[in-house]
Write a protein that binds this DNA or RNA. Structure first.
Lengths: 182, 182
DNA sequence: TATAACATGTAACAAGTTACATGATTTC
DNA sequence: GAAATCATGTAACTTGTTACATGTTATA
């Protein structure tokens, strides 16, 4: 359960309320680790029920009071355990974006190339966004961003290779022959 | 909806029944595009309701009859439309495995390295599995497998870099300084 | 004074998974 | 004769999202 780990870990670094957490994730992690607001609020409530965190309410004016969360000892233990479990195993990382590729040969090459160029633009846009976000980051956050960057590069290069391949008008070149060049 | 696209696309290549489809995906796609059996059966039923595919029942002995599906014209149209939409845009590809990395500095370096080595072994195991699967593939399936292979390589190399970094006993080297070497 | 930002949530829905159910046929 | 494979499904559960609800305070 990555999102619990993330929220717990961030709260461990600094006590925060829900809104603040959402802000932090939006600005520092951007699209890398997506958590929607209601999800975060919901997880916080459930972790509070589990005794992993406790809230202290802070009233500011007449707004809804901020629920500032602090990690408890039980929460710290849970964090340590989840972190280890999470680091050691490798969840195969689903690539939803790859499905369409399987049927690339169902399209005329010219159109396939045009679509892939659109996709490439989207990848590059994400890379740019990442580059812009790349300032000071707490903890090992920069490691995660670098990880993401490398995968974006991998995707971009791969798209380029596929496009290059499709652009060759020689029909003897099956798409299967794309070079592996490790 | 990647799974619908996948099932439709496979049925377009060859009429199949649910069990057969599940087999095919298991053997040819392995862990790359995970669809569980009940999910596949469920999607097939719903696509039948939508008129994208039609089933013809084949009785063999006294077993439950095989429901062999064929793509209809409406299904073909849906496939073409979904394929284009899918190829053109780039879904950010969530990396659940990266969350733990953010808090890598919460662990003693030696333990972090040990855990990362376990993770590395899991990545390499997947690469081996992929290499074994790498025989004849219909359509552009090989492209998808190559895509996956490259991402596994990226992950393996990245883990190696992080390990190398943690192994340096010099405390002046913050994890943030991991080289980008593009 | 209207809009954005602050701050929390609820309720309905969507997508998939796990575990369970059922029974026939083939293989060891 | 036991175990694996064939073949289909249902039901409960988990996880997360979208859309909605509510009201306050700062900013343009």
């Amino acid at each position: 359960m990555e999102r619990k780990l993330l929220l717990l870990g961030l709260l461990r670094l600094e006590d925060m309320h829900g809104y603040q957490l959402n802000e932090f994730i939006d600005t520092h992690l951007g699209s890398s680790v997506p958590i929607k607001k209601p999800t975060a609020y919901n997880l916080l409530k459930r972790m509070e029920d589990d005794g992993w965190i406790i809230a202290s309410e802070e009233q500011a004016g007449n707004r809804p009071p901020r629920r500032v969360y602090t990690v408890t000892e039980a929460g710290e233990a849970a964090f340590q355990q989840m972190l280890r479990a999470h680091l050691a195993r490798y969840t195969p990382d689903a690539y939803p974006s790859v499905t369409g590729i399987v049927f690339l040969d169902a399209l005329p090459p010219a159109e396939a190339v045009a679509l892939l160029r659109q996709r490439r633009a989207a990848v590059v846009a994400l890379m740019d966004e990442l580059a812009r976000t790349h300032d000071a980051h707490p903890g090992s956050l920069a490691l995660a961003l670098e990880h993401r960057r490398r995968h974006l590069v991998t995707d971009r290069d791969w798209i380029d290779d596929v496009i290059a391949h499709l652009d060759q008008p020689d029909p003897a070149n099956q798409p299967e022959q794309l070079e592996t060049h490790e």
